[in-house]
Amino acid sequence: MSLLLPGMHVAGGTPLHRLDPRVKMGASLLLMVLPFVAPSLPSNLLLAGFVVALAILSAVPLMALVRTLRVVVWTGIFMFVFRLFTTPGTPLLTVGGISVTLQGLGAGAVQIYRLCLLVVVSSLLTYTTSPAQLAHGVEAVLEPLARLGLPVREFAMVLTIALRFVPTLFEEIEKIVKAQEARGALIRTGPLWKRVPGWVPVFVPLFVSAFRRAEDLATAMEARGFRSAHQRTHLYRLHLTRHDLAASLLILALGAVILFVEWRMG
């Protein structure tokens, strides 16, 4: 496995794998939002430490995590540079009227930290939760909206199928890229301005085959008695265990401590 993308979950027996998907989704959301409401250094050291502990607990392969982080490297650099030049404050260096500020350096670093946290937390979620569990969790969380007549179950079904085809599409991209490279196309090597047009002959066959797949899949689903998402039942039943309760309390405690720290620091 090269990247930690949704749908590339690996079954495992760690405590994180066994948690209820609703608890994991709630916790992930909290961990991603906290750095925005709690800007101080001590809170964020605590938060980062907690996330590192989770990563260790999940037994996620470090290399895969690093490769996943590399995907957002350009976004990160862009955000950093943007902050560096646009944050007002004490100038460190001025080039042609635009100055790099001390505050900008700090703000840029904070951006990168938030981005990394976002990627790591969402990677941990998809690494430890099967797509079916994710979709099932989404469905359970959104259940109240179903009562208002929104198509929540259909949405969960679509999500399940989309997640199921993520690895398939990546395999297919890999195959097409290799085929095009064998004919001399520059896709993964060479200068950027030459690589971009190289991707066109990758996406065209990809779309063609995706439509073929969708058609086959629809026929197979119909043959297996699919009518609507409504009278369907689920192989898995979600139920909260003591384990889930403890995890929820822990994450709420973390949130409380961080808010307390923020309050004390003013």
Partner: peptide
């Protein structure tokens, strides 16, 4: 293209779930 779910057992369950 006829594999609906993301694991073997969930896929096998698809028909009876319906």
């Amino acid at each position: 293209n006829q594999f609906v779910a993301s694991t073997v057992e969930e896929d096998v369950a698809f028909g009876p779930e319906n």
